[in-house]
């Protein structure tokens, strides 16, 4: 076999673009996880389940509204909101009573939530897999240096920076963002100045889970919407959050870039063993920076 006969500048460039569109999804999901981890100090294992619910909701809304092109956009707008609503109920109903408990308890609790959500998905949507199509103008591909690049991936590439910008505005330019950052550093001090920390936590949790739902909604047209999609994403999201620095949103961006790009380039360079590339990158980062690349808030 001619080793890696297919590596040309054009192929590499295109592979990087494909990798960046995957990065977008990884970033959206893991930034939500990181936000909750940083402010609430909860490693929310159920984050992956909310991603899965987001994808199923997208399918349901798009199917109920009917096949028009607007259906997909409506689903994309409302499915993450529905996920946010679910997380709001869970936070106000159960989580907010548990913040005093130790971390292990919270971890176990979010784990039990994954089981509950999994069964709920099975009850509501059944065990078949669902498939959803992007609107017509996002289907198909266009050519970059003679190689195809799917239009939907371009759409993802444009969405990523928008979400990053939104998160930056939220954490740096809004009151709740500033309070959340302060609460992450010193919870007692924030409540001492008369702010209801409990509600701040609720908002942050809901925003974090909204991002999980958004990630699920965005991948819905590209893959099977099925049970088990939660496991795959939560492992990757945790790895990304860990190499980026726990609770640091920009660390999540950096981690997602490393993960997405090593994956895509690995597939081009050494396709038989591509699976190991992103994980090797994780190991290398952790050997040299055990606390992650950027400053951890923990």
């Amino acid at each position: 076999m001619e080793f890696a006969a297919n590596i040309t500048a054009a192929a590499l460039f295109q592979q990087i673009l494909v990798g960046l569109s995957r990065t977008t999804i990884l970033f959206i999901v893991s930034s939500g996880l990181s936000l909750v981890l940083g402010v609430l100090r909860i490693p929310n294992i159920a984050h992956g389940s909310l991603y899965m619910i987001g994808a199923f909701m997208t399918w349901s809304i798009a199917t109920v509204v009917g096949g028009s092109p607007a259906a997909f956009w409506l689903a994309l707008a409302f499915a993450p909101l529905a996920v946010a609503l679910v997380s709001f109920v869970v936070e106000r109903g159960i989580f907010c009573r548990l913040y005093d408990r130790e971390h292990l308890m919270l971890l176990l609790f979010t784990f039990s939530l994954t089981l509950v959500f999994n069964d709920l998905v099975k009850l509501i949507w059944g065990s078949d897999y669902r498939s959803l199509n992007a609107p017509d103008f996002l289907q198909g591909s266009f050519s970059i240096f003679g190689l195809p690049f799917p239009r939907y991936n371009l759409f993802l590439l444009l969405t990523g920076p928008l979400v990053a910008l939104g998160l930056w505005l939220l954490t740096n330019r809004t009151k709740i963002g500033k309070i959340a950052r302060a609460a992450a550093v010193d919870r007692e001090m924030v409540s001492a100045v008369g702010i209801n920390v409990s509600w701040v936590f609720a908002w942050v949790f809901v925003i974090g889970c909204y991002l999980a739902g958004l990630g699920g909604a965005l991948v819905a047209p590209t893959q099977n919407i099925t049970q088990g999609m939660d496991h795959a994403i939560i492992i990757e999201a945790f790895l990304i959050v860990i190499i980026g620095g726990l609770g640091n949103i920009w660390g999540a961006l950096l981690g997602a870039l490393i993960f997405g790009l090593t994956d895509a380039i690995g597939i081009l360079v050494w396709p038989q063993f591509a699976i190991v590339f992103p994980y090797t990158a994780v190991v290398i980062v952790l050997v040299f920076r055990p606390k992650g690349l950027l400053k951890s808030v923990w």
């Binding site: 076999m1 001619e2 890696a4 006969a5 297919n6 590596i7 040309t8 054009a10 192929a11 295109q14 592979q15 494909v18 990798g19 569109s21 995957r22 190689l147 195809p148 690049f149 799917p150 991936n153 991948v219 590209t222 893959q223 088990g228 999609m229 795959a232 994403i233 994956d263 895509a264 597939i267 081009l268 396709p271 038989q272 063993f273 591509a274 699976i275």
Partner: peptide, 22 residues
């Protein structure tokens, strides 16, 4: 010419396909 192997449940096949096309 070559082989690509992905994990079961691979979420995104696009990078595999583009590298094969190259």
């Amino acid at each position: 010419l070559g082989e690509s192997w992905w994990k079961v449940g691979e979420p995104d096949f696009t990078p595999y396909i583009t590298s094969i096309l190259a």
